[in-house]
């Protein structure tokens, strides 16, 4: 009886030791991680873009011929590189990334634009407040005195996904759009970048969120529908030219 109890206790100790060993090997740094698990973990860490996307002022579906690689397989990182180069060439040096179903979203920093949709020149492009007169001219002075200093602002969101989507009824504020830049990732995660971009299923949609401030005493509000079409925004921002290169 005593010998049997001793045997059971020994078995328990062995089992306990074995299970601890398994646990250490599973979670320990020495064990190579399962690649798919690592990817899944990375995906869950990526902040998600509001889905379906909030109502945009204008949209445009960029033709896949402009973003796929001329040779070989196109991956999402290639698409990202193509868009990033076009953005960088036209002054959009700050971007952030979000996960969307089966793809990603790339958000540009909010910029101030002219009434025709071209990006404002100089540092005023990135300024949110009405700019004072820096150089005096009678025409500019009278304009500032008598006309409301309207402000137009734009955020462009590129959404690359094979999943068709509509837009929600949510109307975002300028502050929410500005937060996108800081709440997203600074680069496209490898787990998403490795995904293959099939031109049969994937689309690259550009959603333009345009905000208008009627006077310097008002807060900017989103314009729905926008004054300009999505393609016009992308053309005037110089991005279509960059993508066609």
């Amino acid at each position: 009886m005593k010998a049997r109890r001793l045997l059971i206790e020994n078995r328990s100790v062995v089992l306990l030791t074995f299970s601890m060993l398994v646990m250490i090997l599973s979670f320990g740094g020495g064990c190579p991680r399962n690649t798919s698990l690592s990817r899944r973990e990375q995906i869950t860490e990526i902040p998600h873009f509001p889905w379906p996307p909030p109502q945009a002022s204008a949209t445009y579906i960029i033709p896949n011929t402009l973003i796929i690689s001329k040779s070989g397989v196109t991956r999402l990182r290639d698409v990202d590189e193509r868009i990033t180069v076009a953005l960088s060439d036209h002054g959009y040096s700050e971007r952030s990334y979000f996960a969307v179903p089966a793809g990603y979203a790339q958000v540009t920093r909010i910029e101030q634009i002219e009434i025709d949709g071209t990006s404002m020149k100089g540092d005023n492009r990135w300024v949110q407040d009405a700019s004072p007169l820096s150089v005096f001219s009678l025409q500019a002075y009278l304009k500032a005195l008598f006309l409301a200093p309207r402000g137009y602002f734009r955020v462009i969101v590129f959404i690359i996904t094979p999943i068709p989507f509509s837009q929600s009824d949510t109307k975002i504020t300028r502050e929410e759009a500005m937060k996108w830049l800081s709440s997203g990732l600074n680069r496209l995660p490898d787990s998403i970048g490795e995904m293959e971009f099939s031109s049969q299923t994937f689309t690259c949609s550009a959603l333009v969120y345009e905000f208008e401030r009627p006077t310097e005493s008002h807060d900017p509000t989103i314009r729905i529908p926008g004054r300009l079409q999505g393609l016009v925004h992308l053309e005037r921002a110089g991005l279509m030219e960059g993508l066609r290169k």
Binding site: L145, F146, L147, A148, P214, T215, S217, H218
Partner: peptide, 15 residues
Amino acid sequence: IIVVIQSMLDRYGDR
């Protein structure tokens, strides 16, 4: 006159 012109040209918006 300045305030009238500003008001007519919508300088103050809805304010």
